[in-house]
Write a protein that binds this DNA or RNA. Structure first.
Lengths: 236, 236
DNA sequence: TCATAACGTGACGATTCGTCATATTTTGCA
DNA sequence: TGCAAAATATGACGAATCGTCACGTTATGA
């Protein structure tokens, strides 16, 4: 509309350009080649201009993580749209998470680093706060699934366990497995199944522990899993 | 004995000096102040000498992580010495892990970063391999507990689940919770209990899911928890 | 048209990494 | 013991990258 808003639009558009370029460098050349100078060079702006948008390198990395979380939220929304019971939805979200880490390993690496204090202390507080909100969005998707499960009596919360705690645990369990799996070296002696299969089995066992119905003994979740894979592949 | 071995001893001793100094900087001043020059300065050696021991910065950080894992293995050994049933031992190890992250937050931060590809690709392959072995040692402690549980019929492996997978899951679950907990910002709206309490509850639910006896409904694990806290405090 | 404000620039200082030619010490042997 | 050769230690140096800022350029609106 007026001049001010045009400027603001230009500004936002340029910020997006910087982010897209940064992501492209990250994916094509790896994080080692992701420098402020290179972003400036590829976008044909000066480095000082990049610093008008981001307070420091960690800040732009943080912004990249933010977009990853938003992307994941979209994937999870799609996973939740699968017809089926609430446990299948949890499984679908877990599978979507795993597929994300597989498809975008550099970004997942960044997401791991972003849980580090070293990282969060450098980025702008505002940006870290945004990431907290993005976390919240993802968390809410889990909460919605849990809420539905409670509503249709598939799940009765175990004593002294809140909904948030339950969602947090599901999130933490997936995160932990995916991180440790991608970091385990080829040389490990451990005989482990593929992480996708472990997520499947362990989720079933944990959800059985919650008493979340139908229990794995009462339902063919292997068939669900096949269905989920097909459902998520369409999305890709 | 002979000259060669004296040199080797000196070499190892100096390496330890570098590591101790690095850890001291890490704890006192934070990772931002942990530079190769500073290590050289404090130990009164030249930087080139430090590089005789470590190929790069990540390599010395990796070595620090290695010592952390060894320290944790010791803590876990102590945790496993608690008189009690096998589930109590699992809980004791989880609690020891949590206490470690609380007491040595900077080191835990480093442990998180060390699961990153960026990190592992830079460190010397030999050192990364060592870390894999240290992981293995920790893993074996869990395996011992699980093995005992199976031996005395407290646990029957769920179908298609191996011992390694079960240990990996316990490890991943704890790791995930501790990482996400320490990274959650003060501003989060989530109403979560302290992570110590979540570890307790969620472990109980997961182990119930495994059918690991005595189930949480058959045993007063809260009392165990108090006992564990006392047991681990003595160690500190 | 011009004064002022907003914006863009890239040279620069600072930090830190990792190297390597040289200096020093140790070793083994005459 | 003395000395040549090998092993080791050193720190000045080059390279990479970060983040800044004084200055030049463009846009605004009276």
């Amino acid at each position: 509309m007026n001049t001010l808003s045009r400027r603001q639009r230009d500004f936002l558009q340029r910020e997006q350009l910087f982010l897209d370029t940064a992501r492209q460098i990250l994916r094509n050349d790896g994080i080692a080649h992701l420098t402020m100078d290179r972003i400036a060079e590829l976008t044909e702006y000066a480095k000082g201009t990049v610093y008008k948008h981001f307070t420091c390198k960690e800040d732009i990395l943080c912004a990249l993580c933010l977009e990853c979380l938003q992307h994941m939220a979209d994937l999870f929304r799609h996973a939740s749209s699968l017809p089926g019971n609430s446990r299948e939805h949890v499984m679908a979200v877990g599978t979507a998470y795993q597929m994300f880490t597989l498809r975008f390993p550099e970004e997942f690496d960044l997401l791991i680093a972003s849980r580090t204090n070293k990282f969060r202390q450098k980025a702008a507080p505002k940006r870290v706060e945004d990431m907290g909100n993005a976390d919240q969005v993802v968390h809410n998707q889990l909460r919605a699934i849990v809420g539905r499960a409670i509503a249709d009596d598939a799940l009765v919360l175990p004593p002294h366990i809140g909904v948030d705690e339950l969602c947090f645990s599901l999130w933490a369990f997936s995160f932990g497995m995916l991180v440790l799996d991608q970091a385990k070296d080829m040389t490990t002696e451990l005989q482990l199944p593929p992480v996708q299969q472990m997520l499947f089995s362990q989720f079933n066992l944990l959800l059985d522990g919650y008493g979340w119905k139908p229990l794995s003994s009462e339902f063919d979740y292997l068939q669900s899993f096949q269905r989920i894979l097909r459902h998520m592949d369409v999305q890709s």
